[in-house]
């Protein structure tokens, strides 16, 4: 569990520092800044107090949950997020490429070499 604590603290500090820098540079608005701060402070808090998840689940559903189940659910959730991010990035990349190509072919479309007839 020590490794989980170290990793969450390490990545949490990196993300929070990056968010703060972006906010200071006005590259992010305060809502996004606040969202990431809360999410990552939450991640660090849960990493240091894992029992809290069990207590919450117990209160909500009268069932207990193991660490393995938490990791499993987290992993599936991460895979879903990864898939969504990949699909979105891929779509953006394709649209960007199409735009770049359209601009590159603009001169040709108006040039004599394709308008000879």
């Amino acid at each position: 569990m020590l490794l989980v604590k170290i990793l969450s603290l390490f990545f949490g500090v990196i993300v929070i520092a990056k968010t703060m820098t972006d906010f200071k540079k006005k590259e992010e608005n305060w809502q996004v800044f606040l969202f990431w701060i809360i999410v990552w402070l939450g991640v660090i808090f849960v990493a240091f107090n894992p029992a809290i998840i069990n207590e919450m689940v117990l209160k909500l559903s009268n069932r207990s949950i193991t660490v393995g189940q938490i990791v499993g659910i987290g992993f599936v959730f991460m895979l879903y997020i990864l898939y969504r991010v990949y699909v979105k990035a891929h779509r953006q990349e394709k649209q960007f490429s199409r735009l770049i190509r359209k601009i590159a072919l603009m001169d040709l479309k108006s040039s004599k070499i394709v308008n000879k007839k």
Partner: peptide
């Protein structure tokens, strides 16, 4: 040569596709 400019580096594949599109336009 006739130069077709990609404003941003896209990779050799993207450049080849642009070239093939140009070939179509050129008939």
């Amino acid at each position: 040569a006739m130069v077709l400019t990609h404003l941003v580096n896209q990779g050799v594949g993207a450049a080849t596709i642009t070239g093939l599109e140009a070939a179509k336009l050129y008939d």
